[in-house]
Nucleic acid binder design. Structure first.
Lengths: 233, 233
DNA sequence: TGTGTTATTATGTCTGCACATAAAAGCATG
DNA sequence: CATGCTTTTATGTGCAGACATAATAACACA
């Protein structure tokens, strides 16, 4: 019995996982409270708490004060997803990363973008179009609008060699962002950049980045057809 | 000074966020160690630890033993993503959830699926095709293969009223799964189910679920064109 | 019977302390 | 000068005990 003691939170997590897995505790069912589990496992309540909290975060348990802890009804819930940081993604795939700036101008943004960035009296924005390459072949096309009133220094930034993405990461304060994942038919302009068929189904990540209440930038990332974003949970 | 004390981990988290945001601590830079921060904030080191751990998990900090804690170079990294649980997703959108079974038979699976499920001597699998409705309109088409040797009871389960998804959640042990997100041109069969144009760009979630080393089921979820999966970070 | 108040209870969090462990930096040795 | 051991240090984790908070359950009263 000595070797099988459960006195660290990972062991507790494992044991709880096992009981859920083996249906000793069934979905929707209430599990014993922290104090009892602590006694059973022979460890401190804080340790049990740590484990249960981790399990709740990964979506396997539902916890509510006073109501207790129960096995989640929908075990498939949350996943920690690595939002692709393009350069990394390409280099991790074993390819040489390349970047090419295709367009850069201050111009009137289409209404859709203005709405997305909640800019109400329309004003000209910095428009950057570029392509990221994996070993010379187009990987993702980037269509970005930047509000120069929020990031004035962007106007003097040369996006020729460094991607706007990386420049912004280094030169703007930390921000929140909204991300949408969709499938779209490739607009002909983007198709041309990617060397793909127009209207082909493309994976699109649309990200809008906020500094408090003001939109810093809105990007559309059109991935070359065939792209898959992978996770496990 | 009394009202602004930082004595709970959320306050610590907030303060650290603020300092990163306002570039007091710049990307890549080392921040003070836990003990010092604890003294500065007037709280226990465990409290600082809790906050920094949370920030590290959300990708804002990089921590390594002995090396210390530094502001992440690529603040845009990880997001906790809610993997859509279809029924919930529909009901949360304010629609009435509906489900219709379209096909259900034990048959030979195409090679692609067998590979995905790592089934080497081909054997017949249970094939279920269904559609999930939001207020009568097709929301997502489900194309699922189940290995009856792993879940024998599935053969006697009537998937007429309850979706295979929910049935499996309730009747299989807890499992891991691989999830891929892609854009595809709608196969004509799925297009018909969804009442959409064939070849239209559709968001596809492909999930393979494992019980240890054996594939329980492989699903393809074809979302009706226009679908957006949203997150923020 | 319905409703508002109170008690109970399970989780949430803080404190202060201790020891474990990984990794960097320094030191010694060949 | 390279290599391997030792020290130092920052994070990781453990414990016991206490109080906070939210939400259910029980109760009393109109």
């Amino acid at each position: 019995m000595a070797g099988s003691e459960i006195n660290n939170w990972r062991a507790v997590e494992g044991e709880v996982r096992r009981r859920i897995h083996s249906r000793i505790w069934k979905p929707g069912e209430l599990i014993p409270n922290e104090a009892d589990l602590a006694i059973e496992f022979g460890c401190a309540r804080a340790t049990v708490n740590r484990a249960l909290r981790a399990l709740a975060q990964s979506g396997l348990l539902d916890r509510r004060r006073k109501a207790g802890t129960r096995v989640a009804l929908h075990p498939v819930g949350k996943a920690v997803l690595d939002i692709p940081v393009i350069r990394q993604e390409i280099e991790e795939g074993g390819f040489r990363y390349g970047y090419r700036l295709l367009h850069r101008a201050t111009e009137q943004a289409p209404e859709g973008k203005l709405n997305r960035m909640r800019i109400s009296p329309p004003r000209p924005l910095l428009h950057v179009v570029a392509v990221h390459l994996a070993d010379q072949t187009p990987y993702v096309a980037e269509d970005r609008w930047i509000d120069p009133t929020v990031v004035p220094t962007a106007l003097s930034a040369p996006f020729a060699t460094i991607s706007a993405n990386e420049w912004l990461l280094q030169h703007t304060p930390y921000t929140r962002s909204d991300i949408d994942f969709t499938a779209v038919a490739l607009p002909s302009e983007m198709a041309q950049i990617l060397g793909a068929e127009p209207q082909a189904a493309a994976f699109l990540i649309a990200r809008t980045t906020w500094d408090s209440e003001r939109a810093v930038t809105a990007v559309d990332l059109y991935y070359a057809p065939g792209y898959r974003m992978k996770t496990r949970l």
